[in-house]
Structures are given as structure tokens and as C-alpha cells.
Design a protein around this nucleic acid. Structure first.
Lengths: 324, 324
DNA sequence: ACCATTGTTGACAACGTTAACAATTCAATT
DNA sequence: AATTGAATTGTTAACGTTGTCAACAATGGT
């Protein structure tokens, strides 16, 4: 910066002000500085700037993993807003491991981010303590039910489960099964299943069986689980899956086996991925606004200085495909 | 840090050394400091640390977008290595826009990252200049053909295209078409198509037609393009797609239309996504090591201090599914 | 007992920027 | 011409760490 200042014949602080385009800068000064800066192709050092100004233009983002198609979309949404505001995301992946999540959050907080976006609402005292100490705005995404640290942006997984149960009941299914994976991590999968079971009970058609896999979700696993569940409980006429990957596996199996979907077997997924809308029979699912969730979370984070913590229910939509 | 030092009854520099676990620290000192640090739940300020030490534990990662399933996997790979080394990724998305990419790179470099991972090998003077000035290690991923700035990790897209052409020829297809999207961004898609066409020519069975869409890839678009291409060129007996999303769309259309795959119509994708292995007929494709690409790129970045720039060909595999 | 070596701790300054305050300029008003 | 106040620029001192160098203690070999 000193070099730029010398070359432009002004003080360092003037360079600083032009670079940040602070108010009350004369055109003459701005010209001199930008010319000098370009000539030297000067890049400001944000580490120093953030250190001094105690605010960093970094936003910490903690997600479980990129292997579930939901989170890339969320990240796209987050970046779309951050980019527009000249902010950068520092990313941490927890791998669904609470200990690793704590470690990652601690690391990210050490960059004094402008805010932090966390996934889910289940965070222990360790996390709450760190956040409180740093006094950093928090937005938690995915869920809107629970005891949040800051703002929440997401959908009601229990309402979504109830809507799914209602939809399947309305379609005439009476002997319904459930397939989940990855030991029902994250917790919201469990919450969803429980609400689903309760609503089926309420309809007088209790869940026939739930098959929870240990592996991570994938279409292949979904197909295998579908076979297993139907073998053990041949009376099942419909399956609700924890996500579209599993459901697609089920659908592909059903197509191969020549089952009459949706008459002989109904299939319902969760998330409403694009791919499910292009299958020979479009997959019925619960559409969740993933991109928007990320965008809104970033947006809320930036507003949270002025407005307080909020809860935003982005809602879901029952996508009535051909599999139910 | 001062508070911790006071509480522990030592100097600030000793706290610093314990926190960084520098060598030559007595157990007694370490105990005192860690106790005090825990009691105060002290989090070091990395901005200050990085500023002073001129090295930041941040790695800049520039990807085009998260909406293509390739990049989340790459990012997972990158994070797996960074996490293990206690580094953090600062992410920037270019949206396939060169101008935006330049802007993003400039932003990320202002954090004095330890290294930067870029996508592709097509970078102009603006980028090269910034990189050179900052003297930061670079790894470019995806391609291994071109004029790199630093190291390259990826696969040979021209070899992959040749392998695809050979495979389809060996399977007996003689009237082959091609479907691409997004105006053949990124450039490697174009390179792949050209190599593919050339190899078909070499076999004496030139490409019947190429259909390049303006929209971004998706299964739905793939189905529509397949219909369009087959309508215009009913003689086509096989289609090579720019990616699996498009190819899956083609496969779903073929299944719905009752076409006899692979006899009446062959289909080949690119990337080897998991979902393509669970479809009623597994999708033939070129498998690319996406996760490994990210992991190797991060690994190379860390080694590049000692070892120089390198080119790593991770290779591909022809996945011989049921659609060819 | 001496010196060289290694291990351990501390004092000080500096990393590159910006907040806070001070000083100057300049146009508008009296 | 004097006065005012806003607009513009400059001076100084940090932000919270760590590199450098110095000092001191412990160790081991002669």
C-alpha cells in the first residue's frame, strides 16, 4: 500500500479509502490512486484489513457432506448471495460427526467470520459456548423445529411427513412401509419418520415396517432395501423413502421387476430432485427449496446485524408424480 | 492471548508457541498454558497469526458451480485432505463466466492463501499475472492437456473420447450421434467432442450429427435432445452424451418409448455417476475419478513447496453397462 | 571445574491495514 | 472580509499474532 501511496503521491490512508470506496473521496484522488494501484497491480491484503477492522468478509459454512445432492444446491444458493455482496465462504464439512463438527466450527471461528451457517438444530453446549463467546451471527438451515442458536431457515420436517402420510392415504395406500439409511442420520430423518408413523397411526393404517439401513443412501442401496422389505412384508403396497436416491433405487427395481407402479406398489421420495422428474414414471416426492434455503440463509445472516434472529419457513410442496 | 498469558503466569509468546505446538516446550509450560486457555476458552485469532507469519492455512478453491454433480465430489475430495492437515477451504464459484472467475480469484488471493485450486486449464493473462505476483502454488484440475500455470490433476479428455469411440465401434455401432449442452462450456467438452469426431472418422464411420443445446445439462433436457436428434436423423443407432445427466434422460426416454436398448439404440454417458449404475439397464459411461481428483489436487498443493509442478493423469475407465 | 551444546523462555518489533482524531481546503453564508 | 460548516485528506496508534534475537538453564564431554 505504501508503494501505491508513494506512486500516487498521497497518503496510505487515502489508498485504503479508495480501495474500500469509502465516502467523500474526490474524483482526482480516486483517479490517482486507482491508476497507481493498477500500474502496480496491487492487491489489498484482507488479512490485515480484517484484523484491524475486526470484521472479515468471510462467512463460515458448515455442511455435513457434499455427497448428498441437497447440500451442493444449498451451497450454490449461499454463494449466489455472498458473491453479490463481495463476501467469501470458508467451508467446513462435518461428515455427520458431531465431534468433527465442533472441531470444524472452532477452526472456522478462528477466522473471525462475519457470520456462520450451520446445518441442523442439534448443537451441544460446546458449539453454543464458542458461538456466544465470539458473538457471531448464526443461521441454522434445514430444520425449523428445535432450540436454535440464532436464526433458522428451512422446512418443517414433521409437517412434510404428515403431508406425505396424508397424500399416500388419500391415494388409497393402506399397508405402508418406510425405508431410511445411514442410521437415520441426520436427526431430522428420524423426526420425519416418527411424524410419518404417527400420522399413519392417526389414519388408522399404522406403518407395516421400517427398514433402516446402515449404509449411506444411494439408488443401489434403495433397490436392495426395497427388495428386502417387500420380501419380508409382501403385503406392503407403498413405500415412503427418506430421500430420492433411495426412492429412485426402489423405482428402478420396480421397473425392472415389472411391478405395476403405482397400482401394485406406490413409491414416494423426499427432496424432489430433478432426476426424479425425468424417469419413465416421474417420482412422487416432497419438494424442498434447497437453493433458496442457502440464499435465504446468507441473506438473513447479513441482515442479522440490524434485525434480530428469525425463523423462516420456506415450505415444501408435494410433487404428485406418477409413482403414487 | 494476553489474558491467557497472565492467567498462566507466562509470556504471550509462550502461549503462542503452545497453541501452535512449536518445538522445545516443557510439559510444565504446556500444562499451564493449555489449562489457562481452556479455562478462558481461548480461540487464537488466525487473522493475526496469518498476517504476521505470511502464511494462512487457507486454500482457495475455484469451481464453476455445484449444480454439476462432478464438483461436489471433487470438493469432498479436496476437503478430505485439507481437513486432515488442519487447513480450510475458501470457496469461489465462477458460474462458468471467465470475468467472474477473474474477480473471484482476485478476491480469494487477497486472503493470502497457502495455495489455489483452479478448474480447467484455460486461464488468461489476468489470472496468470495475479498468480505470479502472489507467488502462490497452483493446481489445476479436470484437464491434463493444455498450458498449465502450475500442476495439473485430471484425465485426458481426448483419450477418453477416443476410448468411447473405440468402444462404440467395437460394439458395432456405425451411425453415431452426439449430444452436448450449455454451449459446450467448459472447453473440455468441446475438446472431447472434437477428439470423438476425429476418432469416428478414423474408424470410417463419421459422426452423423451433433446436437448442442443452449440450456444447462439435465435429464429432462437430455430426453428432449434425444427425441429431437432421433427425429431429425432416424438412422442414428447410438448416441454419445457430454455427461451422464443428459444420457440418463436419453435412457429414460428410450425406456418409456419402448426402444430396444442397446440393440435399437446405444447410449453412452460421461462421468460414471452412481445413479447410472442402478438404472434398470446400467448406463455405459466413462468413469472419472472425481473424489480422487480433488484429494490429489489438495495433496499436490501441499507438496508443491518442496516438489515442483507436476502433471498427474488419474485415468478413466470405460464402464461397460447395459446400454451399449 | 570448564566450556560447548542443546533446550527452554522472554523482550521487542513488525506484519499491512484501518479507526479515531486532527488538519486542511473550499464554497456558502453573513 | 469574516465566519461557518461540510468535504476532503493526513497523522498516529493500534488490531493479535509471530519472527528474530537474546538470555538463561540444563546437559554432557573433556
Amino acid at each position: 500500500m505504501k508503494d501505491v501511496a508513494t506512486r500516487a503521491g498521497v497518503s496510505e490512508i487515502s489508498v485504503s479509502r479508495v480501495m474500500r470506496n469509502a465516502p467523500n473521496i474526490s474524483d482526482a484522488l480516486r483517479r490517482k490512486v486507482t491508476d497507481a494501484a493498477n500500474a502496480l497491480s496491487y492487491t489489498p491484503n484482507r488479512l490485515a484489513g480484517a484484523l484491524k477492522s475486526q470484521s472479515s468478509n468471510l462467512v463460515a459454512v458448515v455442511l455435513p457432506s457434499m455427497s448428498n445432492a441437497v447440500f451442493p444446491a444449498v451451497l450454490d444458493g449461499i454463494e449466489s448471495v455472498l458473491d453479490e455482496q463481495g463476501l467469501n465462504a470458508v467451508l467446513g464439512l462435518s461428515g455427520y460427526d458431531p465431534d468433527r463438527e465442533v472441531r470444524v466450527i472452532r477452526e472456522l471461528l478462528s477466522w473471525s467470520p462475519k457470520g456462520i451457517i450451520l446445518t441442523g438444530v442439534h448443537h451441544g453446549e460446546a458449539v453454543r459456548g464458542m458461538i456466544a463467546q465470539m458473538d457471531v451471527p448464526v443461521v441454522q438451515i434445514m430444520d425449523i423445529e428445535g432450540d436454535p442458536i440464532g436464526s433458522m431457515v428451512g422446512v418443517s420436517h414433521s409437517h412434510a411427513a404428515i403431508a406425505a402420510a396424508d397424500h399416500l392415504h388419500a391415494r388409497g395406500y393402506r399397508r405402508i412401509g418406510y425405508i431410511g439409511a445411514w442410521n437415520e442420520r441426520p436427526e431430522r430423518s428420524l423426526a420425519r419418520r416418527l411424524a410419518f408413523e404417527q400420522q399413519l397411526q392417526h389414519h388408522g393404517t399404522p406403518l407395516v415396517a421400517a427398514h433402516i439401513l446402515e449404509d449411506r443412501s444411494s439408488a443401489r442401496i434403495g433397490a436392495a432395501a426395497t427388495i428386502a422389505l417387500l420380501t419380508e412384508h409382501p403385503e406392503i403396497d407403498c413405500i415412503f423413502y427418506a430421500n430420492d436416491d433411495l426412492a429412485l433405487g426402489g423405482l428402478f427395481y420396480a421397473l425392472s421387476a415389472g411391478l405395476d407402479v403405482p397400482r401394485e406398489l406406490g413409491l414416494m421420495g423426499f427432496n424432489g430432485l430433478d432426476i426424479g422428474k425425468a424417469t419413465p414414471i416421474p417420482l412422487s416426492s416432497i419438494e424442498t427449496p434447497r437453493f433458496q434455503m442457502g440464499a435465504k440463509a446468507a441473506d438473513l445472516l447479513l441482515r442479522s446485524r440490524t434485525e434480530g434472529p428469525q425463523t423462516v419457513d420456506l415450505g415444501f410442496r408435494v410433487f404428485d408424480g406418477g409413482t403414487t
